[in-house]
């Protein structure tokens, strides 16, 4: 299921955010070898201090399996500030109805292959549907997303091919990065839903969102009972 965490509710979701930053460290730091800052196994950059919106996929146990970060293109965002090479010195797009999505990733270590609920393919589609619907419901018409060629192939295979690209594909660590354009239309969302066989609402219910919050985090409590994950919890509660 998908949960959206932004500047208004992030104080209630320390655990989910911490797991997300750890996932980003594994994906962008280790797997893709991008030049990112990793501290204590967490990848956090300057844009995370700007109150972005995070669209996060959690599995049935409440663990983070996918995430993406969204920012408005009218203000500071990655293509305007740090991804100069992709734009080759050109000015970035800036529009009220265009969002930028960055740090799109899924946990390929814990998820399996195939198309079941616990597969990479399902998690990717669910996250795509969640982020496109969140944007569309906010009056956004298009998304410019910074992705690597592997994610680009995954999008194409999921019947969600970008309709165009901005700038040029640029070497970045072990792989390269590119800026792709996606429309937030019902047609695209329906194609994705048909491909993944997802017909239900992908967003968590208010009740589930409450369960996932730090105050009533049953997943964290049960792990603490068995002495698992105590180190992570201790560092979280110490803040």
């Amino acid at each position: 299921m998908i949960i959206v965490i932004d500047g208004l509710n992030r104080h209630r979701y320390d655990r989910l955010l911490d797991e997300m930053f750890a996932l980003r460290a594994r994906v962008f730091g280790e797997r893709l070898g991008w030049d990112v800052n990793i501290t204590n196994g967490r990848e956090i950059d300057q844009f995370d201090t700007l109150d972005p919106a995070y669209v996060i996929g959690v599995d049935d146990d409440g663990q983070v399996v996918s995430c993406v970060r969204a920012l408005q293109t009218t203000g500071p965002h990655m293509l305007s500030e740090v991804f100069h090479e992709i734009l080759d010195g050109d000015a970035p797009l800036r529009s009220a109805t265009l969002w930028e999505s960055t740090r799109f990733c899924v946990d390929t270590e814990t998820l399996n292959h195939g198309k079941s609920r616990n597969s990479v393919s399902y998690a990717t589609c669910e996250l795509m549907i969640g982020s496109l619907e969140y944007a569309k419901n906010s009056g956004i018409s298009d998304i410019v997303t910074v992705i690597d060629p592997i994610m680009n192939r995954v999008l194409k295979r999921s019947d969600c091919a970008p309709y165009d690209y901005i700038g040029k594909t640029t070497p970045m660590g072990k792989v390269s990065a590119m800026a792709a354009l996606l429309d937030c239309t019902d047609e695209r969302i329906n194609r994705l839903r048909a491909f993944a066989g997802i017909t239900d609402d992908v967003f968590v219910s208010a009740e589930r969102a409450e369960q996932l919050s730090d105050q009533s985090d049953q997943f964290a409590l049960s792990h603490n009972l068995f002495g698992l994950g105590t180190e992570t919890r201790a560092s979280l509660y110490a803040r």
């Binding site: 797009l93 529009s95 009220a96 265009l98 298009d142 309709y163 354009l181």
Partner: peptide, 17 residues
Amino acid sequence: SISHRTIEVHLRSAREK
């Protein structure tokens, strides 16, 4: 040789700038 939608997204951005 680009899509109609690409034209639109650039035009919208240009208008707003």
